[in-house]
Amino acid sequence: MSTDLPDRLSSDPDSPFHDAALLERGIGILFNGAEKTNVEEYCVSEGWIRVAAGKTLDRKGKPMTLKLKGTVEPFLKEAEAGEPDAD
């Protein structure tokens, strides 16, 4: 795990743990050794992630989430090497 990543991060702009600049760089999450692509929020020290529960929405129009507990390892996604340039 890289030391420049925060302990807790959320994709919800209303959350105090939201960091748009960091999210634009691309964050990946390894949860119990498997990469998860649908993570809404994570906390490394407490060992949990929040994932969307299907397409259901709460009364404010935000996705309903489930809290899953386990080992959380965030990482920065690197640009794919060898991608052809669009000319």
Rank of each mutant, 00 (worst) to 15 (best):
P74F: 03
F17L: 13
K55H: 04
E80W: 01
G61V: 07
D19T: 11
A21V: 12
K55S: 08
A34D: 08
K55R: 08
D12N: 15
R25C: 11
D19P: 02
V39N: 07
K69P: 03
P84G: 11
E35H: 04
E41H: 06
L66V: 09
Y42F: 08
G54W: 03
K36G: 00
R50Y: 00
K62V: 06
L68W: 05
G33P: 04
P63D: 04
E41D: 05
D7F: 13
K77D: 02
F75L: 10
T71N: 07
D85R: 12
K62T: 02
L68M: 11
I29Q: 07
G54N: 01
A81I: 13
S11W: 04
L76K: 13
M64A: 11
E46S: 06
G28E: 08
G70K: 01
E78P: 00
N38K: 08
F17E: 13
R25D: 12
G47H: 02
L76S: 08
L23S: 13
I29R: 06
K36E: 12
S11A: 10
E24M: 09
T65F: 07
K36M: 08
E35L: 02
A20Q: 15
G61Q: 07
I27Q: 11
L22A: 04
K60P: 00
D14S: 15
G47A: 04
E78D: 02
K77G: 00
L23Y: 12
A34Y: 09
P13F: 12
S45F: 01
L9R: 01
F31H: 13
L9W: 03
E41T: 01
E40M: 13
Y42P: 00
T71L: 06
G28Y: 11
K69C: 04
T71M: 07
E78F: 02
A34W: 03
H18I: 07
F31N: 06
L9C: 03
L76R: 14
P84C: 09
N38L: 12
D19A: 15
L30E: 06
S10C: 13
E35Y: 01
V72I: 05
P16T: 06
R25Y: 08
T65L: 13
V51T: 09
